[in-house]
């Protein structure tokens, strides 16, 4: 994940923005590109998009807060998404979530103090046969039990193991 602190942010922002014509209908697509590249939307990114489209930054901000795809804050290195779609819910996904909350000491929406993990819930990953399921970055873990969750988090938690592929 790239950081907004990069000195050439202006140039990189430009390269994203100029993929699109200056029409408001491309606002979401631009925001998605920033979100994907930097993992969240910084104030500066919002300002740049607004300036490019020649609309108030408040408009971009309202899109950013309305749509769930966007985050205004930096996330942890590993983003754990626990599925609470209906199929997972009836197969006790809430127990899985509680186990993770207990292990990491954070609630959904939170990030651990060391910046290692962010915890989120999502409604349906579309892999209902694996229920209950969670995704850590792009890795799927299915048919979870509290015990399995402990094992999996250990892999990510010890500073080595599943680090940097």
């Amino acid at each position: 994940m790239e950081s907004y602190k990069d000195e050439d942010f202006a140039a990189q922002a430009k390269s994203i923005l100029e993929r699109y014509p200056r029409e408001q209908r491309f606002a979401l697509a631009m925001m998605q590109d920033f979100q994907r590249k930097y993992d969240y939307l910084s104030q500066e990114a919002i300002r740049q998009i607004a300036a490019y489209l020649q609309i108030p930054s408040g408009k971009i901000y309202s899109l950013a807060t309305f749509y769930k795809a966007f985050s205004l804050e930096k996330k942890g290195k590993y983003i754990i998404k626990v599925c609470d779609g209906t199929a997972c819910h009836v197969r006790s996904s809430m127990q899985i979530l509680e186990e993770i909350e207990k292990l990491l000491g954070i609630m959904p929406g939170g990030t651990t103090a060391d910046g290692r993990f962010s915890l989120e819930t999502v409604k349906c990953l579309g892999t209902c046969a694996l229920a209950p399921v969670m995704v850590i970055n792009d890795e799927y873990y299915g048919s979870l039990t509290a015990g399995k969750v402990r094992e999996i988090l250990k892999k990510y938690g010890d500073g080595g193991g599943a680090d940097e592929e």
């Binding site: 029409e23 408001q24 209908r25 491309f26 979401l28 697509a29 899109l63 749509y67 769930k68 409604k123």
Partner: peptide, 25 residues
């Protein structure tokens, strides 16, 4: 192709159209 922004209400047709136009759905 237009990528949605993750809002359930955008499955509603008029909200979806607002979203394609680059507005809040």
């Amino acid at each position: 192709v237009v990528r949605g922004g993750g809002a359930f209400v955008c499955g509603e047709s008029t909200a979806l159209m607002a979203s394609i136009e680059g507005r809040v759905g």
